[in-house]
Amino acid sequence: MALLEHTPRGLYCAAGDFYIDPWRPVERAVITHAHADHARPGHTHYLAAAEGGSVLRTRLGLNASMETLRYGEVRELNGVKLSLHPAGHVLGSAQVRIEHHGEVWVVSGDYKLDFDPTCAPFEPVKCHTFVSESTFGLPIYRWRPHEELFGDVNAWWRSNAEAGRASVVFAYAFGKAQRILMGVDADIGPIVVHGAVEALNRGYRASGVALPETRTVSDLDAKADYGRALVVAPPSAQGTPWLKRFGDYSDAFASGWMAIRGAKKQRNVDQGFVISDHADWSSLHQAIDASGASRVLVTHGQVPVMVRYLRERGFDADALETEFEGEGGSDGDAAISLPDGSRA
């Protein structure tokens, strides 16, 4: 019998009697990371990486029964050895390694290989079976290096600041927003964040990530001048009256989907920054190769393409059905309910 199987409640390990990122309420849930499609409320016991504990609590509430593990620490569940390893996706994101009778599986959750100062870098883990996401599993997706990406963001912010108009970036409140805050040159001007972003910033700061100083509009005077400001807001803020205060601002959207001209046009923003927290095409294959696995199970994203291509490359590859959504689904703010109920 397979070490993990697809069930109506989620990916289930029968030998260890636990689920990984289940989508219906279960007794024991191992959580790869706190994005809404992976960490759902309502489970009895949670197990997650220590680094993400604080953010996970923001999402699940303080009274959820939660146990955390340091990266690499091994925990035995009914004879199954379980450990968590950095996935490089967002703060506290983990790959789940499970071992039973010498057979090793790794569930990667969401991951990326690119540099990101807000979380621990992806760590290749050897296994027999590797479960990989495939959000950007097409060769049209190829990310540029961190320095180039943020060179563009800074240049845009700077030229707006010189023209005296605010720069509004729409980015998912958890992960992407903080990566942007860490990547920009905070000397250009003040940074203003939406309440949904600030709520998660607290969790990041509590976990030791040195985000630059940020303010929310409630910290500021009603007549504040935002001419030099960088404003980081969740995509759900686009088109809302909340933005009126920034006057004639320039706006941008930060997402892997911005690689496609049509997708950018659809978003109707001045700029599209191709910044993703998922692996691009070459990173997906690099990670799969580094796992040493001969069997690869592909989840959410470009499943048929990845499976076909991996088979052509000699892998024993198959699709694994899940209810995860990838970037732009619940990979962000929309489903995050803030503890204090405020959205702005």
């Binding site: 097409l138 060769p139 049209i140 997706y141 496609i260 049509g262 470009q302 393409v305 291509y309 052509e312």
Partner: peptide, 25 residues
């Protein structure tokens, strides 16, 4: 781009523009 034609076609399908697909891959 050293890829099979079917993978190019899948890419083209996702992008919807030939010039852009080629530039991306």
């Amino acid at each position: 781009a050293n890829m099979p034609l079917w993978l190019f076609e899948e890419s083209y399908d996702a992008v919807g523009d030939l010039a852009e697909t080629i530039a991306l891959i």
